[in-house]
């Protein structure tokens, strides 16, 4: 069953041209040139129940714009979106009670009051019965280990603690769909891992459908089986993360270390495409089908091999490659 259906969804922003300088600013008071930019162009995808899908793309790719349209903050300029059978921009109460959006860069908690106050407000806003509220809150507080900070003003919390409280506030009404926009931005490595583990656990336990955007590849690798890659408002890839690697990286990497006198570049080049080279450590790209054979050949050659490892290509590398290719093909 599909929970989110997006058909030919588009969003065009209007803006005014702004020239630098005082004179241009004064001119701008009288005459301004209106410009349009397509933030999202005819995108299509569907997401099923309980899926955790990663949205990938550089800044300004259209990830957040898409999330804003799916959550009803923005009207679309064309196409349609259906989430849980609702048209988001109509902002129907039944829909609003079934989803949540968490933004790493903006919070919904009241800055000057303890997080607990905001939780109570959300209880009333989402009309959560007392018993259910208590149960959910206890569970979330325990999972995120934030019992001690509930009565401290939000402004005094660390970024990591705040993000945990944000998650609690967003999940108290047990949303069926969760949009997470950069939930780990700015957090230290440990806090990132905590949040990541929590999301993973929550998705598994509650079968909540989640769309996640992140700039941290760790988040995507850990959490998402499926990814949608967006660039300049268009979908470049929609599919399993594993397939992405197979499609864009039809090779594996042989990491070989040498001892004695090391090797010369010419000696190793015939086995595959050299990615990194120094006399004692070499990374070779080799076609997936031929990688075992190449490894055997290297081991049985008279090169002073110390160790050899067959590695999967790093996802960061694959993604960078995709963006590099598309940017090279499209004039800026």
């Amino acid at each position: 069953m599909s929970i989110i259906e997006v058909k030919n969804l588009s969003k065009t922003y209007e803006y005014y041209k702004k020239q630098p300088g005082l004179l241009a600013s004064i001119k701008g008071l009288f005459k301004r040139e209106k410009l349009f930019t397509d933030a999202v162009k005819n995108i299509n995808f569907t997401i099923g129940e309980g899926e955790l899908v990663g949205f990938l793309g550089p800044n300004g790719a259209g990830k957040t714009t898409t999330l804003k349209m799916l959550s009803g903050i923005l009207y679309s300029s064309g196409g349609e979106a259906l989430v849980l059978g609702h048209v988001p921009y109509k902002r129907e109460k039944e829909y609003q009670k079934q989803f949540a959006l968490v933004m790493g860069q903006k919070n919904q908690l009241w800055w000057d009051l303890p997080a607990m106050e905001s939780f109570i407000l959300n209880k009333e806003i989402y009309e959560i019965p007392d018993a259910e509220f208590k149960e959910n809150l206890d569970e979330l507080v325990e999972l995120l280990e934030i019992k001690d900070i509930l009565d401290i003003q939000v402004r005094k919390l660390s970024l990591g603690q705040r993000m945990k409280c944000e998650l609690v506030a967003a999940l108290l009404h047990k949303p069926k769909v969760l949009f997470l926009d950069e939930p780990t931005i700015g957090l230290d490595v440990i806090a990132q891992k905590n949040i990541r583990d929590f999301i993973k656990h929550y998705n598994k336990e509650k079968k909540t459908t989640i769309i996640l955007t992140s700039h941290y590849m760790e988040d995507i690798k850990e959490l998402c089986k499926r990814v949608i890659i967006i660039d300049r408002g268009q979908i470049l890839y929609d599919g399993q993360l594993d397939d992405l690697i197979k499609k864009y990286a039809p090779y594996k990497v042989l990491n070989i270390t040498f001892n004695d006198n090391g090797v010369k570049r010419e000696e190793i080049e015939k086995f595959g495409n050299v990615q990194k080279y120094n006399s004692y450590a070499v990374a070779l790209e080799v076609d997936r089908e031929k990688v075992k054979e190449a490894a055997t050949r290297i081991l049985s050659s008279n090169l002073p091999v110390d160790d050899i490892l067959i590695d999967e290509v790093d996802i960061d590398e694959v993604i960078r490659k995709i963006f590099r290719n598309t940017h090279a093909n499209q004039p800026v």
Partner: peptide, 8 residues
């Protein structure tokens, strides 16, 4: 934006 997300 946050007000547009909630049933208020």
């Amino acid at each position: 934006s946050r007000y547009l997300l909630m049933p208020i």
